[in-house]
Simulated assay, not measured.
Amino acid sequence: MTVTLETLDARYNIPQPALSRSWLCEAMADVLNQLDAMLPRFTTTFPAASASKGRYPAVENVDWTEGFWTGMLWLAWEVTGDDKYRVVAERLIDSFEERLDKKIKVDTHDLGFLYQLSCVNAWKLTCNTRARGLALRAADLLYQRFNATAGVIQAWGDLSDPARQGRMIIDCNLNVPLLFWAADETGNSAYREAAVRHLAQAARYLVRDDASTFHTFYMDIENGQPLRGDTHQGFSDSSCWARGQAWGIYGFALGFHHTGDTTQPELARRLAHYFLNRLPEDYVCYWDLIFTSQDNAFRDTSAAAIAVCGLAELLNILPLTDPLRPAYHNAIKLIMRNLSTHYFASAQDGLLREGVYNFGRHMGINEPNLWGDYFYFEALVRLSRVWTPYFC
């Protein structure tokens, strides 16, 4: 299949003012102030996946999103050197161990989000050997979800459930880095092979020929044949869920870091053009890219933040001579300025308001969500310093 590379909208060719050091410092200070306001409430529990009326309820470690809280704590510690963030991040490792020991909702590919941003970070940043061991246990559980016949990691649910077998989703692009890390740590090439094969299947079947993406695709686990694509969170099976497209941009760019496969950043580029060409006037996407300004649809600021991180990772890969580099830089500046100016959650919990968790299930609509907060913070860190991304 040949994936279309759309011509990038001319508005991205208009030079944009730099995100100055003072602008970045002010934006970072706003983030840290918000985290400091939340920190006393979330030292032994976690913010829920999304806020309710602008405030995050406290939850136990039972969902797919708890790692984003520890991820923000580690970011804050790296940025400031203040041990108050590290102390809480390390304290919360207990809950990640309990989750593995008691098998609390570990039948999911989101083990990458959970353990990469908590335990792998603790190991990489502080040499915490206990955290390393927990992350390796999580990686082994993730590997068990790989079906060698279909070449995919099953997204969620009991592996013996016929209704869920062979289902991969675009989000998993950001979970396979846990397997790449485990392969490097242990020398077990099976982890790497599973991650490489899954990314290849995602590229082949989750990406449509017009460079939009399915959220979900089903493979036959008996013969490895493709079955059908659909959506779990987008507007329709044939539309393009904005956050899924952003996962694809970032995930395929990361794929190059782990594999050296040059087709992956080129695929990320195609997905990025499709995404950027469908942004409204303020450059913050609607929750599905099918919508236009006439539809009065909700935004999804989290998808915008993820896309910025994906574009930044793409810029780390592309040669300095690539003619589209200035346009991608302009896109990042436009999105980040609008997120900071018009969507920062200054009067609420969290960092970004107007996220959408799951519209069809009436979950987290027009509210801050934890992953949007994390990726907005990550974007600022990426733009303000030389930094090794947590998914690398």
Rank of each mutant, 00 (worst) to 15 (best):
M1L: 10
T2V: 12
L5I: 08
Q16F: 01
Q16V: 12
P17R: 06
R21Y: 04
L24P: 00
E26G: 01
L32P: 02
F42K: 05
F42Y: 15
A48G: 12
G54T: 11
E60T: 15
N61S: 10
V62E: 15
W69S: 01
T70L: 02
T70F: 00
M72L: 09
A76V: 11
T80S: 11
G81L: 13
D83P: 03
V88L: 07
R91P: 03
R91N: 15
E98P: 00
R99V: 06
R99Y: 07
K105E: 12
T108S: 15
Q116N: 14
S118T: 15
C119R: 09
V120A: 13
V120Y: 05
A122C: 09
L125D: 04
T126S: 13
R132P: 03
R132A: 07
A135M: 00
L141D: 09
L142P: 00
R145K: 11
R145S: 08
F146T: 04
N147W: 10
T149I: 14
T149A: 07
A150H: 05
G151K: 10
V152H: 04
D158S: 13
L159K: 13
S160I: 01
Q165M: 13
R167G: 01
I169Q: 09
D171W: 07
N173T: 15
W181H: 14
A182L: 11
T186Y: 06
Y191S: 08
Y191C: 09
R197Y: 05
L206D: 05
D210A: 07
F217Q: 08
Y218P: 00
N223Y: 10
L227D: 09
G229I: 11
D230M: 10
Q233F: 03
A242Y: 02
D261P: 04
T263P: 02
T263A: 14
Q264F: 15
L267V: 04
L271S: 11
Y274P: 12
L276G: 11
C285E: 06
Y286N: 03
Y286H: 10
L289S: 06
N296P: 00
A297K: 09
G310M: 04
L311Q: 09
E313C: 08
E313K: 13
L314F: 11
L315Q: 14
L315Y: 13
N316P: 00
I317W: 08
I317Y: 07
D322G: 05
L324M: 14
H329L: 14
A331Y: 10
I332W: 06
L334H: 02
L334G: 03
S346P: 01
G350Q: 06
G355Q: 09
N358M: 08
F375T: 06
F377C: 00
F377Q: 01
S384D: 12
W387A: 10
T388S: 14
Y390W: 12
